[in-house]
């Protein structure tokens, strides 16, 4: 899968999680929504890993592992990425 396809998929799954997060804040007893949240959370971690193998770390402060070479300073910033 292309790097930009993985990013797109990651953004889609994360969007679902943002929606569920806000919904669950107001409806914390909805067990089905919690299940969906965890299902998508697993999917998000899988896609994050896949994207990072292609494009480098997504997150700072150790929330992403660095490859041998430090690339945080050389991978494109969100406003520079051509979608």
């Amino acid at each position: 899968m292309e790097c930009s396809d993985t990013l797109r998929k990651f953004q889609e799954v994360q969007f679902g999680l943002v929606e569920l997060q806000l919904y669950l804040d107001m409806n914390p007893a909805d067990q089905r929504a919690v299940q969906q949240y965890n299902y998508l959370s697993d999917e998000l971690h899988r896609l994050k890993h896949e994207y990072e193998m292609q494009a480098g770390p997504l997150m700072q402060y150790g929330f992403s592992r660095s490859p041998k070479r430090w690339v945080w300073t050389s991978t494109p910033w969100p406003w520079e990425i051509e979608y």
Binding site: F10, F15, P57, L58, M59, Q60, T75, P78, Y83
Partner: peptide, 13 residues
């Protein structure tokens, strides 16, 4: 807060 090096939605003009 942890920064994520991507946007919530793709931006093209």
């Amino acid at each position: 807060w942890i920064y994520e090096k991507k946007l919530e939605v793709p931006v093209r003009v």
